[in-house]
Design a protein around this nucleic acid. Structure first.
Lengths: 336, 336
DNA sequence: TAAGTTTATGCAACCGGTTGCATAATTTAT
DNA sequence: ATAAATTATGCAACCGGTTGCATAAACTTA
């Protein structure tokens, strides 16, 4: 049914190998023959069958992006989101296919990632830190499949290559931004112990303001915890500004401040990590630490393709975030 | 290097065909032999090479989800997001792989979707309505690849199978919800002419409130247009409630109302289409028409797999949305 | 012009499975 | 016990490309 390399060969009066060599472009076929074969291929509208090609070449031409089924859908996804576009772009530039799969590691059966490995379905993997286990890393290495992690890992940091945001620098940017506008006492809201990115943000904050002037209000990222902790923070009146660990908490602060009659940015400066689309639609609009997940995806994919070409050593990449100034910190330095 | 079916056959003392038949499970191999082969496969940790399998079977074992590079990243992506999880779930249940690709139809070269078709890389396609063209549909049909569209299409509605939300019903739900709470004059904010989903929402709204009592404030979904139109609407004072075409516009209404000293829900009832994570963090929290994109993804994928098993006719599926009541409409019926 | 190089192409095996057909092994019927 | 029917398995071709090696053709060089 489908047109094969043999059909093309017959029509062009050459052998299949010659056609194959023209397709691959990596051999010394005479200019004349090449042009003729190209012409015939165009005429017959021929495209090589990728299954056959992969089998012969011994690769899959796929790389897989694994997502974590267990992550709470909402925000984790938004994140996953832009990075996938960056990844997809690089994958396409390399003439590869991008597979997406959930890691449903039930323990009982082989997880989907294991299956990808065993059935030789991928030449490379992009993983979230949350699914890493000693067993998984060992298995991937046994199969000699290069992989890269989208984010830092506290437990396995020394066994993996990863691309993450420099969260410490993010906090420094936030602190500096607030100080520049005359805010003196800066609090940090959010972050729980298990997330390494929160840890680093808090660390960066503490280092910048100085351990003694740090006021960290740890809390989970949901309505109840967020509101409670925001109100607590505002009631204490220790601080004239706050850095939020994410947009949800920033929204909570806005709400809490409103309830208590505290004006943002007049009485309270507010900087938040993350810049989701609605961050510029709030009242006041949110000054945000912007994380370029698209670039993160690109970076990870590029690294992966390099590792596939030539064995490379472990590499940790930290991208520098930026800050976008909006109403929530928009006051004169001397306004205080 | 890798273990093949031949290695297994040798060890088990049978022919490769027998092993193959055990793997496929679709033939009459004796119980004894089957068990033995299974044992050997487990011992050798054997998994069939998928490239070889696909080549022999003449399929790819892939379905592709195409995303539209041109859609504005933000909100389109959030949408894309949950549906991809639903799709991925069904794909995995069917032991298939999910490919994701951008449709970079530059016109010059073959677009990525065309490539997928020509290189036999997919057995099925899930497409966004925005990339449909006569040429593309024709090409897909020529290749006899089943496909389904994630959303309705005005131009090609009669040539495709699609899964969409019943937007008319969404509007009816919103209107009914507002009426139940004693709101009398309901406006509709947002929607531009090119989007069929907006059209249907407005249509459903008009049909429910009656053509003569309809007040549609069309506008684009961005800060400038949204604020301007929201202020205009509130200034006119025609209505005591509004249905917003999306969360961005709802945020604009909240901001505009605050500026004008209008209380939500007291003076103005507010229902919005879409329920993005931050919709419950606003002040007031947003009553929202919830669109289950996860289910939409599942539905589309299920339909696709059915079409792959047996040729099926075109099918239009409309999922019923639901409404989640929050503060922005939370007043007594007699409060007015 | 013959010998030596270089370049262009074909042959055939191979990648690792699947499957139609033939045959061997086993069971059932007579 | 033998023929007939049924079940289990193997053989070999095939899916559609790729590639090492051999050889033919074209080009140098002496």
């Amino acid at each position: 049914m489908a047109i094969t390399i043999h059909d093309v060969a017959k029509r062009a009066g050459v052998s299949p190998s010659t056609v194959s060599r023209v397709i691959s472009g990596n051999s010394q076929i005479s200019e004349k023959t090449t042009q003729n074969i190209n012409k015939v291929m165009k005429e017959m509208n021929f495209y090589p069958n990728s299954q056959a090609r992969n089998l012969a070449k011994g690769n899959s031409n796929n790389i897989a992006l694994v997502i974590d089924a267990n992550e709470k859908a909402s925000f984790a996804n938004m994140f996953f989101n832009s990075s996938v576009f960056g990844i997809e772009k690089i994958v396409q530039e390399n003439n590869y296919n991008l597979l997406i799969t959930n890691n449903n590691d039930s323990g009982a059966k082989k997880s989907s990632v294991m299956k990808l490995l065993f059935e030789s379905k991928v030449d490379g993997l992009i993983l979230p830190p949350s699914i890493l286990t000693t067993k998984l890393i060992k298995e991937i290495n046994t199969h000699k499949i290069p992989f890269v992690v989208l984010g830092e890992s506290s437990e396995f940091g020394d066994q993996i290559s990863y691309v993450d945001i420099n969260n410490k620098v993010g906090s420094k940017l936030a602190v500096q931004h607030l100080k520049d506008r005359g805010y003196k006492h800066i609090a940090y809201l959010g972050g729980c112990d298990k997330e390494i990115f929160s840890e680093n943000r808090i660390l960066g904050y503490q280092e910048t303001v100085g351990k003694e002037s740090a006021h960290v209000y740890k809390c989970e990222s949901n309505k109840e915890a967020g509101m409670k902790e925001a109100l607590k923070m505002l009631t204490k009146k220790e601080c004239d500004s706050v850095i939020c660990n994410d947009n949800i908490l920033a929204f909570c602060v806005i709400k809490a401040a409103k309830k208590m009659g505290i004006n943002i940015p007049g009485d309270l400066g507010l900087v938040t990590f993350d810049n989701y689309p609605l961050a510029e639609y709030t009242d006041p609009e949110l000054t945000a630490i912007v994380i370029d997940t698209y670039a993160q995806g690109e970076e990870a994919a590029n690294f992966l393709f390099n590792s596939m070409k030539e064995h490379s050593t472990l590499k940790k990449t930290l991208l520098i975030p930026s800050i976008i100034s909006r109403e929530s910190t928009d006051r004169d330095k001397n306004n205080e």
